[in-house]
């Protein structure tokens, strides 16, 4: 509050209104998160009805409950599966999308314009039309209940958005650099790997983080394709929690919800500059 007061002294009453407004919005936006943190330390019976954000006597029971796992499966299994899929997706997206983007931005080949238009088209394609036929495809290939259906698209650059983002970024790179490389006798592969990729780091990091978070949060993919609980991701583990313990163990479910968010929140705190600043400005350059 003293900071606020100082700000008001310096900038006048407009600043006070600004800060008050921002704080009110902040309260509304963060309320669900803070509520979850508080609720995870409350006994199950008090979670819904109690209005206090934080309990008078916080308990750790909800968290110790998590160490028992769900249906005999330790929570760590879900986290490992999610990590595997998320990291696998990141590698796939970074490699395949950057290759495609390089071709669009730096190679002059026949049919490029048409393919670029198609790629933009898939960016706007609602996935509904693909759910059933892709499922049938993977069923025929006997790939249901494997991670392959969840990963393969990432290795085949089907995330048009990231291709688009990287094309934008590569176009912004100074032309002299790759022209110089060509004069030095570098082929496209060398130029791509040693010159363009290192320079694209901001776009790659942004794509990587979003890919990780999307894969981590994905619900429908695992719901359709994973059948055995020991292959479940965190999202599906949470779903199991709802199915099995909503009655008996509301607290455990809330605690698990919070734990499931931690990796996403950690990425956000660590990389928020990349996510917000880098993206907003790098996009505008194009």
């Amino acid at each position: 509050m003293s900071l606020l007061a100082a700000a008001v002294r310096r900038r006048g009453p407009g600043a006070l209104a600004w800060h008050l407004g921002a704080l009110v919005i902040l309260g509304v936006v963060l309320y669900p998160v803070v509520w979850t943190i508080g609720a995870s330390f409350k006994p199950s019976a008090e979670i819904i009805g109690a209005l206090d954000l934080f309990p008078a006597d916080p308990i750790g029971d909800n968290y110790t409950r998590l160490t028992e796992g769900i249906a005999d499966i330790p929570i760590s299994t879900f986290f490992l599966n999610s990590t595997y899929i998320a990291v696998g997706s990141v590698i796939g997206v970074v490699l395949s999308c950057s290759l495609t983007a390089y071709a669009f931005a730096k190679v002059r080949f026949a049919g490029r314009n048409v393919m670029f238009a198609i790629m933009i088209g898939t960016l706007l394609l609602p996935y509904h039309v693909l759910i059933i036929p892709q499922y049938v495809l993977f069923q025929k290939l006997e790939l249901i209940n494997t991670f392959t259906p969840l990963l393969i698209g990432k290795y085949l650059a089907t995330d048009a958005f990231f291709v688009f983002l990287m094309v934008q970024f590569m176009r912004g790179l100074p032309k002299e650099l790759d022209e110089a490389a060509r004069l030095d006798g570098c082929g496209h592969l060398r130029t791509y790997w040693s010159i363009v990729m290192p320079l694209c780091r901001p776009a790659l990091v942004t794509s990587a983080i979003f890919t990780f978070i999307n894969a981590w949060n994905d619900f429908m993919g695992p719901l359709l394709y994973l059948n055995e609980p020991d292959k479940y991701t965190v999202s599906m583990g949470l779903k199991m929690f709802i199915d099995q313990d909503a009655v008996a163990d509301y607290g455990g479910m809330i605690a698990m919800s919070l734990v499931a968010l931690l990796p996403v929140l950690a990425f956000f705190v660590a990389f928020q500059r990349y996510l917000i600043d880098g993206m907003a400005t790098s996009g505008l350059k194009g």
């Binding site: 495609t100 693909l130 036929p133 698209g153």
Partner: peptide, 23 residues
């Protein structure tokens, strides 16, 4: 060079997008 670089995308488009849409 262009088609080589594009090959993952082309495969993805044919097998995961265009083909399934027709099917």
């Amino acid at each position: 060079a262009g088609y080589l670089f594009m090959s993952p995308w082309i495969a993805g488009f044919l097998f995961l997008v265009a083909g399934p849409m027709v099917f």
